[in-house]
Structures are given as C-alpha cells and as structure tokens.
Design a binder for these strands. Structure first.
Lengths: 337, 337
DNA sequence: AACAGAAATGTAAGCGCTTCCAGTGACGCT
DNA sequence: AGCGTCACTGGAAGCGCTTACATTTCTGTT
C-alpha cells in the first residue's frame, strides 16, 4: 500500500463531526470556561477519536506567538555548551514551549541565521561569541525578548554570566600560595568574554602578589591540540614559567601532555590549572574551576520567560558564583586522595 | 523611553510603500522569475529599507510547511548525544532549515511532547530510548517523515545505527587474546538498544571462544557512580572476573576507580573496557570503541531531508562502522605510548 | 406569562503569507 | 487597423486557528 499522503484533520472536521461550530471546538479544547461541560466533553471525545492536533502554524498566526524559545551558542563540542543547552531545554520544556537551537560555529552568515531564528520564536538566549553587539542590539530593538549568557551586556538586555574574574584571582592567588613565581596564561582573551575575564583576574592577582605580570598571554585556541602546542612552545623557552594558568580544561590537558613529553613533573616542576571542570579534568587530577552550566542555562530560561510574559522585574544582570576545584596539578595536597 | 511594543512590518506595508500589490512583493522577494527585474529591485530595496522579515507563521500556514526539523534524544549529558545533535544541526542548517530539539530525559509525558514536536516540523529524527515503538508508529502513520537513530527499526522507517554487536565481539575477542578468562558485562541491555547489541556481541565472543558466559549482565545505569558501585560489588565476589566489559566509558571510568580503591592493578589484575571514546577515556588510558557521533547525526539529517523532499530512494537501514581504540586498560601494549 | 439577564453557542473577521486566476498593456504580426 | 501573444501585475481565495461580537437559549423573577 503506497504511503498515501494523509491530510491532517482540521478543526472544521471536528466541528462538523461534533455538530458544533469551530469556535466551540476551539474553546472546548483550550478548556475555556465558556463551554457547557457536556459539550466540552463531547467535543473532546470527538477530537480524540479523530486524532485532532491543532495546527501550530494556524495557532501561531492567530495568537501572534510561537510558543517556542531559541538559544544561540557557538558550538556543542565539549561539555560546556551542551550542559547549558540542556539546562535551558529542561526549563523551557517545563514551561510548555519548544526549543530551537542555532550553532553559529564560525558560520559566516551567523547574523542572518540569528535573525531568521528570531522570526520563529517568542524570545531567545544568545551566548558568548556568536554574533556581534550590533546584531544583538538590532534584535533587541525589535522588541523580541532576549537574554544574554556568558557575554558582556548590550544595552538594557538581561545578562547572566558565570564569574570569571574573581575566581581567576582566587585561583592564581592559590598558586602563588604554593610558592610559584613565574606565571604564564594560556588562552586568547580576545576569543571570548569569559577568557578575557579570566585573564583579567589572573593579571590582578599577580599584581596584588607583587609578581611580574607576563607581557601578554600565550594566545591559543580552545582545544587540546592548541594547548599542547602553545605549552610546548612556552615551556621550551629559557626561563620557562613555573605555573600555567589555562583558559579552559582542554587547553590545560594539552599542556599536561606537553609537560609530560618534556619530562617536566606536575606539580613538581610546573603547576597547571584549567577551567570548567569537565569530566576528563577529574581523571587528569587537574585543578580547575567548576561552574554550574546547567544552572546558567536554567536561569537564562527563567528570565527569558518572565520577559516574554511581561512579568520581568526590570533589567537584570547576575554573575553566578563558581567554585575552585583543587586537585593535584597545582601543587601537593594530601587532602586529595 | 519605555520599550514601546513595535509591531513587525508586514508584506502590506512593503507593498504600499513600493506601490505594488502584495502578490508582487511576495514574488519579488522569493525571486520568482515572474517579476520585471526593475520592479524586483525596487521592491527589494523598499523591503530592506523597512527591515521587512516575512512572518514565519504566515508563511508556514500558506505553504503548509515549517522549514524546520526536529530531533529527539534522551538527554545531552555526556558528549555522546551532544555530538550527534551537533552533526545534525550542522547539516540541517546548511539546508536552510531550523532545528527543534527535545530531550525526553525520563519525562513521563515524553510521547505527548514528541507529538507536539511533530506538529512543528516537517520531519524528525528519533533517537534511542526516548519513546516507545507505538509512538513512533503512530507518527510515521501520520505521514511525517522520520528517521530513527541508534534504535531498532519500526515499520518502514529509515534507520541509522552505529555498529554495536560486531565491535563488541571484536573487543571481547581482543580481551580473550590477552588471556583473560573470566568476564563480566557491566550495563543494562534493557536500557538501550545500543547496550543490548554490545551485550549480545560480548556473549557471542565468549561462546565462540569456548568460555563461560556469565549468567547475566551486572545491570547498572550509565554514569560513573553507577559503574563504580556495580564494579565494586562485582570485584568483591569470590572468584571475581578478570575482565570487565562496560556498556560505556562513564561506567568503565567508575569501574577503574573501584579497581583502584580495591587495590587491583589495571590491566595486571583486571582488564576494563568502555565504549564511546569520550575525552576522559583518553586520559584514563581506557580501551574503548570509537564511533563517529557527528556522522550519525549528519547522516540522519541527510536522509530525513530526502524523505521530506520526496527524493528518498526507499527504505534505508545502515549500520555505521565503529573503530576499536586499544589503550592500556585491556592489557599491556607497547605500541601505545 | 412575560421578561431581564446570564449562559452557551455561532458568525465572521482577522493573523501574514502564497499562489491561482484574471486583467492590463505592449508588442509584433497579418 | 485589428488581433493574438506574451510579460507583468493585481485581485482574491485560501491556509487553520483565535476571539470579539452577535445571537440564541435558558434560567429565575415578578
């Protein structure tokens, strides 16, 4: 039997079959209080029999809203963004809305894609390094509810971030406490606002500790290989650093490998720290900073919902706290098993 | 200045402003060949000036399609599904369509959510253990294009999977080659079709090797903690197994910890293998099986697109190959650094 | 028995777009 | 000059729903 194209049943057929008008069907199904209980039951039964599912497009057009929220992120590689998206999805779904995703992952037409997305949702979250401020501003100007995540504020848009600067300061201070004196930072502050914050905290802590601040960070991308290369380079210099503060865990893991290859003991000859507390960090005994990505996503989702429903208390900016996770890569500890 | 609600510009305003009918505007923007080049240019300029963005809902209603695809997965924890989703998103976005996601993550109303999703997309991918076959069948019956991923076929729906059984057989055989004789399987075959396949391959290999097949697998969930607990339990039995084949890397990592805690050397006293080749597996030197999740997602996206556009060559079922990644947790190797 | 008011239901006007069909000129031909 | 063609353009009918407003049908009152 050829898969004959089934036309979905419409509200008209339900109305016909139930012997009422489409208005009554609509009301009965959205159980407004305006229908007699008996008709409501009858209509509901007929609708069920016919397997009626109201067309989303029709509803969206009539109601002027989509019952869907968007989220824009750079990519989903690495556990970081995936967790955020998951936290977001969880809350949004609970609110009875759908989730549209968009990974910009270095796409040239990212701004267009974001605009397109904007036309399909009632509000959206824009993360980190995905599109420029002008795009954000233009969309905000549209009146579309927006929440920024892990990205510096733009205009009067709500913004959630995880702390970078304070934790970076604490982390660096911790290293100084271990006695390390020559530091380098691995990562590109220009690459993301997060990294910029981490670098800033790093610099502050060194200055506070009266130590030399390296002229500039060792710029490298966000992955293991880049970390490996950058670290190898850096560690081969005469007067190599004693401690490497890395922009994230992947970079730190690469650095760890490089140290191993160069025969440097960690933490004996060299301290290394990461950021994010990904699963591999645990196995590499990497000292790092933990942030609840799930919570970030969930918070963004809740704020956005309030913006959409117009119950938002005003412009919100919040920096979620992070937590130092001290393992052994930053110095000897016996409280860590 | 209060954020006055801006009403989006419609095709009528563009038509007005350009001094043509909405029909012409519509045609000019979808650059059909039916408009005079000069009018087209004029309309396009006006549309741009007005920042006109056609309403998705209006278009969806008129065209009878959404230009969006869905994907349903259990959750996004762990790199596995995130990678699949990313591979999917990449292809779908290239095709000029949007991506709706739905994580069922043990939600009781998963089936309803999937039906709801079905009403918003032109087709969707359903992964592994998310909803029952009857839900899949019902949606397929609707005529909605569907592709199943990492899940046994249902009816005539296209299905992509990564190989489980063959690789599990090869992996187990490899362990047997190392001289291990007493095996256990950690994981719940009832939890996902993938695990079931892995267990089946495991059993076959043992039988082929003339070894005892354990009465039943040691059932445990998919995370590190569950693996730890299950392994600890198992390894404390008199006559403990010499090799633990785990359902995935997380479980294996837990088992590795348990072995460590019990003072068992890996691979000396005990071999352990995982599945998925997550990043942490590398750092734990865990022997495992690599599958290209990205490719899975991309393939599903492409097939789905062909189903939607009606260019599908027929019912397709494919098992994507996987690759053994031999590290040291399965026995001594000197080809691994 | 008549009627005001409430309750239930129906009518119809959109929502913003696509597209079929018909109309309008301009053009080239006989 | 008359007419058929062709290239454009406009009118208008939906697409499937929600909802303001109108209409009908019950109540309960007097």
């Amino acid at each position: 039997m050829p898969a004959r194209e089934r036309r979905p049943v419409t509200i008209y057929e339900v109305a016909d079959r139930a012997g009422v008008s489409i208005a009554t069907v609509s009301r009965a199904l959205r159980d407004s209080e305006l229908v007699a209980p008996s008709t409501r039951r009858h209509v509901q039964r007929v609708a069920e029999e016919l397997r009626f599912r109201p067309s989303r497009a029709g509803r969206a057009l009539a109601e002027g809203q989509h019952a869907a929220n968007g989220i824009v992120f750079p990519d989903l590689a690495g556990p970081y963004y995936a967790e955020v998206v998951l936290g977001y999805e969880e809350v949004v779904a609970e609110l009875g809305r759908s989730v549209l995703i968009l990974a910009t992952q270095g796409r040239a037409n990212a701004a267009d894609l974001v605009h397109e997305l904007a036309g399909r949702v009632d509000g959206m979250v824009i993360m980190g390094r995905t599109v420029g401020d002008s795009t954000v501003a233009r969309i905000a100007d549209t009146g579309l509810p927006l929440v920024l995540l892990a990205r510096p504020p733009v205009g009067l848009v709500d913004t959630v971030t995880a702390d970078n600067e304070d934790s970076a300061r604490a982390l660096t201070a911790h290293l100084i406490g271990h006695g390390y004196r020559r530091f380098d930072f691995l990562g590109d502050p220009g690459q993301s606002p997060d990294v910029a914050g981490r670098h800033a905290g790093f610099v502050t802590a060194l200055a506070d500790g009266g130590l030399d601040v390296p002229a500039k960070p060792v710029r490298c991308a966000f992955d293991v290989k880049a970390g490996y290369t950058a670290a190898r380079e850096t560690l081969r210099r005469r007067n190599r650093p004693e401690a490497l503060v890395c922009a994230n865990d992947e970079v730190a893991l690469g650095a760890l490998r490089a140290a191993e290859d160069l025969g440097l003991a960690v933490p004996g000859d060299l301290a290394i720290t990461g950021w994010d507390d990904i699963m591999a960090a645990d196995y590499a005994r990497l000292t790092t900073v933990h942030q609840s990505m799930r919570e970030l996503g969930a918070t963004a989702a809740r704020w956005l919902d309030q913006r959409i429903s117009g119950t938002s208390p005003g412009v919100r900016r919040e920096v979620l706290p992070t937590r130092l996770v001290i393992r052994t890569s930053c110095g000897p500890h016996d409280n860590e098993r």
